[in-house]
C-alpha cells in the first residue's frame, strides 16, 4: 500500500482542473458551437496529443498538463486525487498542418489543401482548415496558385524557414521581457567568440526560442531552423567537449559555476537574472577573443557545457 509509484494510468478521471484562455469560454456568448477536445498528430512526436477546437473550429488550442508527483486538489467541499493542472492555450494550427504539407511535397505538385490534409488515423485534422489563423497564414509555409475559383498549395521550405525565423524572433522578444532564465544551457564557444558579451546572451535567447519552437516541429525542421539561425548544432550534451577542453583555450581560471537554477527568494519577488549571467558571459567572451581567429562558418567548433 505504501509502495512508491506514480499515479497509475488506468485511473478513470471524471474531473479536471484547468486554466483556459478566456476566449474558450467567451465563445459561449456567441452562437458558435461548443468547443471539442480532439486528438491530433503531434508534429514533434508523431503520436496523438490532445487539442481543443473552439468557437466553431475557428480557433485551435493546445492542452498541456502541469503534472508534479504527489498532488491533489481541494475544490470547494470536495477532494480530487488527480493533482494535475491543465493549461488550454491558443495554438497556431500551421504547426499541425506542416507535416501534412511536407508529406505531400514529395509529389511535387500543387494540390487543393483539403486533399493534403487528410489522415484516417486522425480524422479531426481536417478541422484545422476551418481555423481563421490557417486561412490567414497558410501562405507563410506554402506557395499558392489560384485556378478559377480553386486554390492550390505546395509546401515551401524556404518560406517555412522565414516563417519559423519570425516565430523565433517573436519568442525571443517575449523571453527578453520575461523573467525566464535562458542562460545555463548548452552553447557553443564559436558563436560567442565572434561577438561581444551582449551577443553571447543573444545566443542564449536564440537557442532557447529555437528549443521552444522545436517542440512544435519535426526534428528535421528543427535542425534546418538551427542552420537558418546560424547556430552551430549541438546534438547532445554528451557529444560536446568536456569543460577541461575549454580551459586549454584560456589562461584565465575558469570560475566555479554559480548555480543559477536556484534563487530561493523569501520575499517571493521575481528577480532579474541578468547581472549574474553576464559575469559568466564576459568570461566566455574572453575565451573567444583570445581564441582562434577564423571566420565563424569555417571555424572548428568547440562545445562545452556551461554551468550545470
Amino acid at each position: 500500500m505504501t509502495t512508491k509509484k506514480k499515479r497509475s494510468l488506468n485511473i478513470q478521471n471524471d474531473r479536471w482542473v484547468a486554466i483556459a484562455a478566456d476566449s474558450v469560454v467567451d465563445a459561449s456568448k456567441t452562437d458558435a458551437s461548443d468547443p471539442v477536445f480532439v486528438r491530433l498528430k503531434n508534429p514533434a512526436t508523431d503520436v496523438a496529443s490532445l487539442y481543443l477546437f473552439g468557437s466553431g473550429d475557428s480557433q485551435l488550442y493546445e492542452v498541456k498538463a502541469f503534472d508534479e508527483d504527489y498532488h491533489s486538489w481541494f475544490v470547494g467541499q470536495t477532494v480530487q486525487r488527480d493533482g494535475r493542472l491543465l493549461y488550454i492555450t491558443p495554438m497556431d494550427p500551421l504547426y499541425l498542418l506542416l507535416p501534412y504539407l511536407i508529406k505531400a511535397v514529395k509529389e511535387g505538385k500543387f494540390q487543393p489543401i483539403q486533399q493534403l490534409v487528410m489522415d484516417e488515423d486522425f480524422p479531426a485534422c481536417s478541422r484545422l482548415l476551418s481555423c481563421t489563423q490557417t486561412q490567414a497564414s497558410l501562405h507563410h509555409v506554402a506557395e499558392e496558385k489560384e485556378v478559377g475559383s480553386q486554390r492550390f498549395h505546395r509546401y515551401s521550405q524556404e518560406k517555412t524557414m522565414e516563417w519559423l525565423k519570425k516565430k523565433v524572433d517573436k519568442t525571443v522578444k517575449v523571453l527578453k521581457k520575461s523573467n525566464i532564465s535562458v542562460g545555463g544551457g548548452v552553447k557553443s564557444t564559436t558563436y560567442i567568440r565572434m561577438k561581444q558579451e551582449s551577443d553571447a546572451q543573444e545566443e542564449d535567447y536564440l537557442r532557447y526560442a529555437h528549443g521552444l519552437i522545436s517542440e512544435y516541429i519535426s526534428e528535421d525542421l528543427s535542425k534546418e531552423l538551427l542552420k537558418t539561425l546560424r547556430l552551430p548544432e549541438i546534438s547532445s550534451p554528451k557529444e560536446s567537449e568536456p569543460p577541461t577542453k575549454k580551459r586549454k583555450l584560456s589562461d584565465k581560471p575558469v570560475e566555479a559555476g554559480e548555480d543559477y537554477t536556484k534563487f530561493n527568494s523569501a520575499d517571493f519577488t521575481r528577480k532579474s537574472w541578468g547581472s549574474g549571467i553576464s559575469k559568466l558571459e564576459t568570461h566566455f567572451a574572453s575565451i573567444g577573443t583570445g581564441g582562434l581567429g577564423i571566420g565563424k562558418r569555417e571555424a572548428s567548433i568547440h562545445f562545452h557545457r556551461n554551468v550545470l
Partner: peptide, 11 residues
C-alpha cells in the same frame, strides 16, 4: 500562457 502567445500568435 504568455510564452504560448509568442510561439503561437500570428507573425
Amino acid at each position: 500562457p504568455e510564452l504560448a502567445e509568442a510561439i503561437h500568435g500570428s507573425v
